[in-house]
């Protein structure tokens, strides 16, 4: 017996909120994988902190998506009973933890964006999203500070840490473009003042990233080919494995309450 996937009526707003919820859950889940295995206890604490922030964001966003959808879905159904093609997160965030440099680089690229994103979203005409943004902005600011500090330590640390950090930057760079993409369904929300145009954040994002990367004595790749697909459910191979673990209980025991 396994629980089947649910269907979701993805109106533009539902889809928009789900995409951000999936971002938060998938990255939060990745960070939680470190718990008990970090390079130092302080980082066990810090990564759990960031993971908890993101799980909190995910829960609020899923709850709101379910409410907007108005069917009988809820946060857990949305998280645990959609398959890989129904997940809408950025490809960047599903990338495996790899070594600590890769985890921090992933965090850094995303936090440099989400910090700006949530701050801008505080002005959303959608009061629920504006409230979620106000809370998430503070959290993202900490994630950015923490991951930036590590980028600099690792880049300007030892030869080995420099090599690992540069490799992570090179490998993950192609996943950063997706953060700024907008499709038709989002365009309408932007015009209505519910969503913000991420393109307007790009210059500032790049400035932050370039400054930290420079201070870290690292280099940004020249290759500007960008991967995309996460927003429409076309993922890398990694997400399926993440979901099979994340969803194993809900899939195995349909309808049970935990």
């Amino acid at each position: 017996m396994t629980a089947a996937s649910i269907t979701v009526s993805e109106t533009p707003l539902v889809l928009y909120v789900l995409r951000r919820a999936d971002d938060a859950l998938v990255l939060g889940h990745r960070l939680s994988e470190w718990c008990g295995h970090a390079p130092m206890m302080e980082e066990d604490m810090a990564m759990a902190n960031m993971g908890l922030d993101l799980l909190g964001q995910a829960r609020e966003l899923y709850g709101y998506a379910a409410k907007v959808e108005g069917k009988d879905n809820d946060e857990d159904k949305l998280a645990y009973l959609r398959d890989v093609r129904q997940y809408r997160n950025l490809l960047l965030l599903e990338q495996p933890n790899g070594d600590f440099a890769r985890t921090m680089t992933r965090q850094f690229f995303y936090a440099a964006f989400s910090d700006l994103y949530w701050r801008a979203m505080m002005a959303s005409r959608d009061t629920t999203l504006a409230a979620i943004a106000a809370k998430s902005e503070k959290e993202s600011a900490y994630h950015l500070r923490h991951s930036s500090e590590w980028m600099v330590r690792l880049g300007d640390g030892t030869e080995e840490s420099h090599r690992r950090a540069q490799l992570a930057v090179d490998d993950l760079w192609a996943f950063t473009g997706e953060m700024f993409a907008v499709d038709d369904s989002e365009r309408g929300l932007i015009d209505a003042g519910i969503a913000i145009d991420p393109e307007s954040l790009r210059t500032q994002w790049l400035a932050t990233v370039a400054r930290v990367i420079d201070e870290a004595t690292l280099k940004l790749p020249a290759n500007d080919w960008m991967q995309k697909g996460g927003r429409i459910g076309q993922h890398t191979e990694h997400l399926g494995h993440l979901l099979s673990e994340l969803q194993s209980m809900q899939r195995t025991f349909p309808g049970a309450t935990w």
Partner: peptide, 28 residues
Amino acid sequence: GNWITRAPSLRRKAALLAKVQDECGHGL
């Protein structure tokens, strides 16, 4: 920690992660 990635609901997942984090704090 063995169950954080498989916790059966988001509420349980967050609570378990917070709990294991507490234990780390106790250690420190």
